[in-house]
Amino acid sequence: MAAFLIPSYLISTTLYGLLFTSIYLLLATGLTLIFGTLKLVNFAHGDLMVLGAFVAFLFVTLEGWSPYLAMVPAILVIAGIGVLIYRFTLRPAVKAGPVNMILLTIGISYILENALAYYFLPVYRTGVEIPSPLRGTGILLPSNVLLTYDEFLTIVISWAIMGVLYYWLFRTRQGIAIRALSQNPVGASISGIDVNRLSYLTFIVGSALAAIAGTLYGIMFTFNPFSGILLTLMAFAVMILGGVGSIPGTMVGSIIIGFATSFVSYYMGQTWGEAIAFIILAVILLVRPSGIFRGG
């Protein structure tokens, strides 16, 4: 029988697909929000996520916090770093044009990665995971597949946060203002919205989402200072697939990329699992080079 038809494989790949989807969703929504509102292509987004994972890791291993509680300092620290980056590099560079902005975020990514490596490598050598007291325990699904409590919590937390985010974006004045800003910055500023404040708010929310995604990712998978680049790319793949700037589209993109990653990893190995997102991305760019931009 073909491997993909074995029920236990099918169930666990689906499970992993759901996990990837949840984490990509948090990450890519932050990226999309920042792009939509600030028109900023942030190549350091995945690095903020990894940095968040590392902050949580420190609180868990050095202070003995629960990993889910350690998410809080991770959010605070990353949101703070995000604001500093925005205030002192990206914001002053807006007039330098989109190309310089991209290169700037690449430079920032490079700084974050190597700064983290400087601290990380001598102590932790290769990769680390955030230790969780729940490890190994869980709910037994059919065909002997274990859904660990960590996995279960990751999925629940991600979607709960997405629920809150959706409520905020679609039901509150502030959220609606942010969406207005992302659709038409000029109109938004005319209609009395405080663009400056909302820009900061967007960067804070986007960075916080990255920190949450990072912590959850770190509980489940190993990471190292250079994991950020792949995560940034995944988030971009999701964002472009879903239609740039579109929040609901991001969800569709996350599901496609999440499940593709999981299934291909399972059957062709992890390297191809990672590459598949970019193969999808390349095909999308080939088929609808401009349409994606406008279509979202």
């Binding site: 292509v41 190549f43 989109p98 190309v99 991209i102 792949l230 790319l233 971009f236 793949a237 472009i240 390297t271 191809w272 990672e274 590459a275 997102a277 970019f278 193969i279 991305l281 390349a282 760019l285 080939l286 080079p289 401009s290 931009f293």
Partner: peptide, 26 residues
């Protein structure tokens, strides 16, 4: 492909090819 992409899409597209190249090499 890049000739058909607008501004920063070229960056993301070329960026995304490097993991694929790496995957092929290993």
């Amino acid at each position: 492909i890049s000739a058909r992409l607008r501004d920063w899409y070229v960056g993301i597209f070329t960026f995304a090819l490097t993991p694929a190249g790496y995957a092929l090499a290993v």
